[in-house]
């Protein structure tokens, strides 16, 4: 993998730090009138998700990280791995529990997810912004009630728990925003 000079630093650039691939969030040059210039950067570690600050001497080089995002359709979970497929080449990739993390609760078969690959191996899975899932468990609640009372918890087919309005019932399909984990609407079958 190529090295990057601090002159090439910008948000989104992928570099190696502390043995972990990282993405630059923010880069600022600090240049005293007399003296060495520095680059102060905020980076997100792509495996641990931690955001940290680092400083480099301007002009120094940093090892790049071979990190790419690919869009793959979710197939199934075999108990150990989550399998995804490229819909054009039909190539398959398996992600482990560490890569999938708690995103497993938003994985719907055939949905196209974004997999972040480091040296070809999945290190993170990002589900679509919206997914549709069936409610498998929730209190019956009062029919005809409207949203605004705070709702009730509902368990979805993947195990995810979201707050839904009181009128939503078991067996219904709902649309959920995976970024916030919030209920959006019911879906007509």
């Amino acid at each position: 993998m190529a090295n990057y000079s601090t002159n090439e630093f910008k948000a989104g650039l992928k570099i190696m730090q502390d043995g972990e691939p990282c993405s630059i969030v923010e880069n600022e040059m600090v240049k005293p009138g007399k003296g060495q210039a520095f680059n102060r950067v905020r980076i997100r570690k792509l495996i641990s998700g931690k955001v940290v600050e680092k400083t480099f001497k301007s002009g120094d080089s940093v090892e790049g990280a071979d990190v790419v995002d690919v869009d793959l359709a979710y197939l199934y979970n075999d108990g150990e791995f989550w399998h995804f497929m490229n819909n054009e080449t039909f190539e398959q990739l398996a992600a482990d529990a560490k890569a999938v993390g708690d995103m497993t609760k938003w994985l719907v078969e055939q949905d196209v997810c974004t997999l972040t690959l480091w040296n070809g191996n999945p290190i993170a899975v990002t589900p679509p912004n919206f997914v549709e899932l069936e409610i498998v468990e929730t209190d019956p609640g009062l029919k005809g009630d409207t949203a605004g009372t705070g709702g009730k918890p509902a368990t979805l087919s993947t195990g995810a728990v979201v707050r839904v309005p009181l009128f939503v019932q078991i067996g219904e399909i709902i649309k959920v925003d995976t970024r916030s984990g919030e209920y959006v609407s019911r879906v007509q079958k």
């Binding site: 600090v30 005293p32 003296g35 060495q36 520095f38 102060r40 400083t55 001497k57």
Partner: peptide, 15 residues
């Protein structure tokens, strides 16, 4: 990883 004295002083001052 820096062993130049003035660079360390400038790092301390600027950052």
């Amino acid at each position: 990883r820096e062993d130049d004295r003035d660079t360390l002083l400038q790092l301390a001052m600027a950052c």
